[in-house]
Simulated assay, not measured.
Amino acid sequence: MTYDFHGHWELVTGHNSPLYRSSLDKGNHDAFNAAAALTYWKEHGAPAEKLLMGMATYGRTFHLASAADGLKAPSDGPALPGAYTQVSGFWSYYEVCSFIQNAAVKWIEDQKVPYAVKGNSWVGYDNKESFTTKVRM
């Protein structure tokens, strides 16, 4: 499983499916990324050819608790539910696509993944660039 590493249950924003660790990660959060998960299994005897990297085709949302809007920005829960899924903290990919049309789309260079912000809503998701980077890992 290489997704759901972060979500609205935390008090700061975090990408749900980062490829690599962030320079901001501390403690056990160093391992909350796809590369670390795959490395763990290989180091414990799993043959690399039998490992599959899960790809999240959805976004995890946060409600921003301050004007900060980057990675590890203060959060006080999930953004509003998506129009179709109606689930707090989770947007389907088509809901993310609608959101990013009018949002500021940003890139987390350390982790090789995008996120988007509009108002007090923050969503971490994957796009063509991040999926391509993961496949080439």
Rank of each mutant, 00 (worst) to 15 (best):
M1H: 10
T2V: 02
T2K: 00
Y3P: 00
Y3F: 00
D4Y: 03
H6Y: 15
G7S: 14
G7C: 10
H8D: 13
H8I: 01
W9P: 00
E10N: 08
L11C: 00
G14L: 05
N16P: 08
L19D: 02
Y20S: 03
S22A: 05
S23W: 09
D25A: 14
G27D: 14
H29F: 13
D30K: 12
A34E: 07
A35V: 12
A36Q: 13
A37K: 08
A37C: 09
T39Q: 15
W41L: 14
W41Y: 15
K42T: 13
K42R: 15
K42F: 09
E43D: 13
E43N: 15
E49Q: 13
L51H: 08
L52N: 04
L52D: 00
A56G: 09
T57H: 11
Y58V: 07
R60S: 12
T61E: 01
T61W: 06
F62R: 09
L64F: 10
A65P: 02
S66F: 05
A67Y: 02
A68I: 03
G70I: 05
G70H: 06
K72D: 06
K72Y: 12
P78A: 15
A79V: 10
A79M: 11
L80E: 15
A83V: 10
A83Y: 00
A83H: 07
T85V: 06
Q86E: 12
S88Y: 11
S88V: 03
S88M: 06
S88I: 01
G89Q: 10
F90H: 15
F90N: 11
W91N: 07
S92C: 08
Y94I: 06
Y94E: 14
E95W: 09
V96P: 04
V96Q: 09
V96G: 05
S98D: 14
S98V: 08
I100D: 04
Q101R: 15
A103D: 02
I108F: 02
I108Q: 11
E109T: 15
K112Y: 07
A116D: 00
G119I: 07
S121Q: 13
W122P: 01
V123K: 03
N127V: 03
N127R: 01
K128G: 01
E129M: 04
S130E: 05
S130P: 08
F131H: 03
T133A: 15
K134M: 08
K134G: 01
R136M: 13
R136E: 13
M137P: 01
